[in-house]
Amino acid sequence: MNLPTSSSAGAVISVAGLSRRFGTKPVLEDVSIHVPRGCVFGLLGENGAGKSTLIKHLLGLLRVEAGAVRVFGLDPVAQGVEVLSRIGYLSEARDLPSWMRVDELLRYSAAFYPGWDHVYADELRRQFELETKVRVRHLSQGQLAKAGLLVALAHRPELLILDEPSSGLDPVVRRDILEAIIRTVADEGRTVFFSSHLLDEVERVSDQIAMIHRGRVVLGGTLSDIKERHVCLVVRFPAPRLEIPSLENVVHLQGADREWSIMCQGARGPLEASLAKLGGEVVEERVPTLDEIFVAQATGAGGMAR
C-alpha cells in the first residue's frame, strides 16, 4: 500500500516508484515515500525487509534502477557532494575508522562540512562523555554509537539519517541517543529519517511512519492515522471452526475453535457483514498497539489456524 502522494513541493525526501533487485532477488518494489520538512519519519521493517537498501539510495550509495529518488530536490548520485554535505548519517555498522582518536575524528570530519559548529561539537562530546584521547577501536559499542551520532549532529545537518540507531545498545545508551535526536528535532525543524525495529522508540518519537515488508510499503501515514485505521476484533462463533476464509480488509487472523481475533484495516462494514453471514459475533473490539499492527502486517493476512 503506498502513501498518498501529498504535496511533495517542500519535501525533503521524495521517493517515487523505487524498485531494486540484487541479482534476481527483488529487494525493493515500487516504494514511494515523501518526507516533509521538520518531520520525524520512522521506517519500520523486519530484518532484511529493505530498510538499509532504501537508506543507501537516499545517500547515493546505490544508483536508482527504476523509479526516482530526490533529496532536497537533488539527485543524490549526480549531485552527491552537495546532498551529502547537508546530511548527517549514522550507519548501522557504525564504521568509524578504528585507528583515529576521537579528537582526530572530529577534526577530520569538521573539514568536510561547512556548517560544522566546534562549540556545539565540544558540548555534545562532553554530554556524551567521550574522551578526546581515546582511539575509536577502544570504544565500547555504546560509545561508538555516540561518537557516530556526534559526527552526524555536529554540523547541524538539515537532514539526519539514522540506520538502526539503537541496535545492539543497552537501554541507558538508547535513552541518551533518543534524547539527542529529540534535541535535534526541537531545533528549528530539522528533519529526521530513521529506521528501527524497536517499536516503542518509533512510536514515541515519530510524526510519520512507513512500514516495509518484503520490499513493499504496507503501512504509511501519521501514527494517529494508522492507529485509527486499525481495529482488533474478537469474534465468537457458535461452533468451533478450523479456519476462516480470507475476508475484506483483514490483515491478520488468529485463533482456534470458537473465538478468533481479527485485525482489521480500513472499513469494517463489509467485514462485519461477512462475519455475520458466517455466524460470527463481535464480542470485543479494541485499538491495537503498534506492536500488534506491526506483527500482524509482517505475518500477513490469511485464514490460518493457530
Binding site: 545517500l59 550509495l61 552527491g80 557532494v81 546532498v83 555498522a93
Partner: peptide, 20 residues
C-alpha cells in the same frame, strides 16, 4: 580505502564524505 584492512570495499563512512 583503508590500507591496513583486508576488506576492499569502501566503507559507508568514507563513501558518505561529501567529497567527489
Amino acid at each position: 580505502a583503508d590500507f591496513w584492512s583486508k576488506d576492499l570495499t569502501v566503507s559507508p563512512f568514507l563513501a558518505t564524505r561529501p567529497c567527489g
